[in-house]
Design a binder for these strands. Structure first.
Length: 579
RNA sequence: GAUCCAAUAGCUCAGCCGGUAGAGCACAUGCCUUUUAAGCCUGGGGUCCUGGGUUCAAGUCCCAGUUGGAUCACCA
């Protein structure tokens, strides 16, 4: 995988590589946040495998000001907290956590385990309150003019001379996002809590003087980023494309890091968004899948595969369609099967696999996802039993677990993502589209309905009967199947016909298959062969024939001769010859 | 306005360090007859967006442009 090899070449010359990523816990993290998690985790695992000393840290930026109302919460309750540090905002009703930052981040951190990501967590509130960033705050406030210059030069943003690169928590209203430090004497900062500081929060107008240290103050995002690099010794940190634009936050942080802290910025891994059906998912609006949704849906190895097989720079365009999901599972399975059969693989494919399949050993057999999707839509089917039947053995523990997770994924997909058309739906009445079936197909349905009266109503029997009926029509079995799916499900394809029919009422099937108008003369026209062709066929098979019957039938002054011929392979063919 | 990403078969895309253009699906032919999103064989189909440059050699590297998507310029 080139991007990892690339990265290895760019590593800083230090004793220990520190990989960092962070999330502001301002809402339920959307699935895009997982891309960062998995990219950084992949880097961590990749370097560790190479014998390079490395640690992976992940921060909760919980001292950031709350800049929007939490999803599903009332303005009444939370308006007054807009602009306050997230760690100081109370959690919503019913939460087991005290503050809203912990409320949101704790479940997100749980996800790490579930998807096999390893990281040491840290919380920015702790760093601020413990004074860890005191030195950074002092340096930045003292050199405010240089920071203003950087803002101007790098992102062409004008910062007035009474703007300082830190904010303090207002002693009166507790807000942080609304305060502007206008002076710093080396010990204390003079600030105003401004009404018009930002659009998303209103300050109280208070003016005061306070020490900006030990949690009283906080650095704004861009310079905070540079401070984290310097004081946490971060050497590798990717970020989404939103940060990576020219003059964007990454550029500002880079400049601050170099010029103020004399620290080489970490190796960057710019990565693209995670798009859902072509649209960017937004956590704030409560639309699109959250990280939690996606983790509940996809098995970890599939999710990891999806995130890692796409080159970081490219956007992942996730579609919840059956086609897309099936392909995703199949792509992974293909790779997995190559691994278990020991095929030669390009290095990067091997790498992706190793980084994707982090939980189980490699020696398990996977069950096709679309098959599972089909089976769980049919009642009374024990999938585990059916799979063991097919494998011809008991499932191993790993296989059982894997299958269980896939069944859950299939259920999730059916319940939350599948469209009407993708569901298997028994048609209560004969679908309109069935009128497009040929007379041959109609004849087949009638033949089949008649044939299954005489057999055991079992999945296998019903499946075999399709082929028997096809020979007796005669019709290409493919078209026969199509006729069944059209009349029963109003689809072109469907689950294995025998299994499907086995779970449907007998009378229903018989009625349905005889329901279409039937023009027997046209049917004969379509299915008849010439006497010569018939004779040729008989010559070809003459050694195999064990029984032969014939009859002539007439309808509307048209006559055909039907030959029913049984061969020694146990199969019976009908040949129809036009008179 | 600036920046980033993309453009390759009908569709979705792969193409790692420059070396005779690939896969899946779709399509077509043939086979098979317990194939139903779970058969098999074979085949057709490409101006690798355009124009220049570097090179013995460019889908790949460089420059300019076209089209589409995204991001930033307030905050994180």
């Amino acid at each position: 995988m080139s991007w990892l090899d690339d990265l290895e070449r760019k590593l800083h010359d230090v004793d220990i590589q520190v990989v960092n990523d962070a999330k502001s816990p301002s809402g339920r993290p959307h699935v895009g946040a997982l891309r960062g998690v998995l990219i950084h985790d992949a880097v961590y695992k990749f370097l560790k495998d190479k014998g390079i000393k490395v640690k992976n840290i992940y921060g909760s930026d919980d001292y950031d000001p709350m800049d929007e109302l939490p999803g599903g919460q009332t303005a009444e309750k939370y308006d007054k907290y807009l602009g306050a540090p997230l760690s100081n905002v109370p959690a919503p009703e019913g939460s087991e956590h005290k503050d809203i930052a912990m409320h949101y981040i704790s479940d997100f951190f749980n996800i790490f385990d579930e998807i096999g990501a390893e990281a040491e967590f840290y919380y920015m509130r702790d760093y601020y309150k413990s004074g860890f960033f005191n030195e950074a705050i002092d340096i930045l406030l003292s050199r405010a003019a240089e920071v203003r210059e950087i803002y101007k030069k790098v992102s062409n943003a004008d910062r007035p001379n009474d703007w300082f690169p830190a904010q303090v928590v207002c002693e009166k209203c507790g807000k942080l996002g609304t305060t502007q430090i206008i002076d710093y004497d080396g010990k204390e900062a003079t600030y105003v809590c401004r009404e018009d500081m930002v659009t998303w929060a209103k300050g109280c107008g208070y003016k005061g003087k306070v020490s900006p240290f030990d949690g009283n103050g906080k650095l704004p995002y861009k310079v905070e980023w540079a401070s984290k690099w310097k004081y946490l010794g971060i050497t590798i940190e990717g970020a989404g494309t939103d940060h990576n634009t020219r003059g964007g936050s990454r550029d500002v942080a880079d400049a601050v890091s170099r010029r103020i802290f004399n620290y080489q910025p970490p190796v960057n891994i710019p990565y693209g968004f995670f798009l859902m059906g072509g649209a960017k998912m937004s956590s704030s609006k409560g639309i699109g899948a959250t990280a939690r949704d996606m983790t509940n849906f996809l098995p970890p190895e599939i999710l990891r595969y999806l995130m890692l097989t796409t080159q970081p720079k490219r956007a992942i365009n996730f579609e919840p369609s059956q086609l897309f999901i099936t392909k995703l599972f199949n792509d992974y399975d293909k790779l997995h099967n190559k691994i278990i059969t020991g095929d030669e693989l390009p290095d990067y494919e091997q790498q992706i696999y190793t980084l994707s399949n982090v939980f189980t050993d490699k020696k398990y057999e996977v069950v096709d996802f679309s098959l599972i999707v089909t089976l769980i839509q049919l009642p009374h089917i024990d999938i585990f039993e059916r799979v063991e039947e097919r494998f011809g053995r008991k499932l191993t523990e790993a296989e059982h677990k894997n299958l269980q997770k896939r069944i859950e994924a299939a259920k999730y997909w059916l319940e939350n993502l599948a469209t009407e058309e993708e569901l298997i739906q028994l048609q209560e009445t004969l679908p309109e589209e069935a009128n497009e079936l040929s007379q041959t197909q109609r004849g087949f349905l009638r033949t089949y309905a008649k044939h299954i009266k005489t057999i055991d109503w079992t999945e296998e029997g019903l499946q075999t009967a399709v082929f028997d009926a096809a020979r007796l029509t005669p019709i290409n079995p493919k078209l026969g199947f199509a006729a069944i799916y059209r009349t029963v499900l109003n689809k072109q394809q469907g689950p294995k016909a025998g299994s499907l029919i086995a779970y449907i009422d007998k009378d229903f099937i018989e009625t349905r298959f005889n329901e279409l108008d039937f023009d027997i003369v046209e049917y004969w026209n379509e299915t008849s062969i010439s006497q010569d062709d018939f004779d040729a066929w008989m010559r070809d098979n003459k050694d195999k024939i064990i029984e032969q019957k014939e009859q002539e039938i007439t309808e509307n002054s048209t006559s055909v001769k039907e030959y029913v011929v049984s061969l020694n392979d146990g199969k019976t063919y009908l040949k129809r010859v036009k008179k």
